[in-house]
């Protein structure tokens, strides 16, 4: 199994928004989608997904409805609201800036005297 990275605090929300942006998903589906789009590189504590989902619903970034999953199980589906879509864009940009900044900081070499 490839080595997996523990996700950074606060990034779970971003990953969820990203996963859901591709279409309505239920909880386990979101988990699979994240594994899929991160090529299995990110390690998520599975239960932690749900408090995050509830929080995003409360913030009005996601909306939920009950439906039947492809496993023929009744469960809750989540999808982005327009506020969620906007937030996702902002967070993506923010994240890219941060990654660039960290990367360039790490590339710097100590000057030799």
């Amino acid at each position: 199994m490839a080595e997996r990275a523990q996700i950074l605090p606060g990034t779970l929300d971003l990953l969820i928004l990203k996963a859901v942006s591709l279409g309505p998903l239920y909880g386990y589906g979101i988990l699979l989608r994240i594994e899929q789009i991160s090529q299995g590189a990110l390690l998520i504590e599975q239960g932690a997904l749900y408090p995050a989902l509830f929080r995003l619903v409360r913030q009005g970034l996601l909306k939920a409805h009950w439906d039947t999953s492809e496993n023929n199980r009744r469960t809750k589906f989540y999808e982005l609201t327009s506020a969620g879509r906007k937030r996702l864009r902002e967070e993506e940009e923010e994240w890219s800036r941060l990654v660039l900044a960290i990367a360039s900081a790490l590339k710097a070499r100590p000057e030799e005297t």
């Binding site: 909880g27 386990y28 988990l31 599975q46 239960g47 749900y50 999953s69 199980r73 469960t75």
Partner: peptide, 11 residues
Amino acid sequence: DEELRAHIQDR
């Protein structure tokens, strides 16, 4: 409960 159990079942 139903939502969380569904997850564990799927898994």
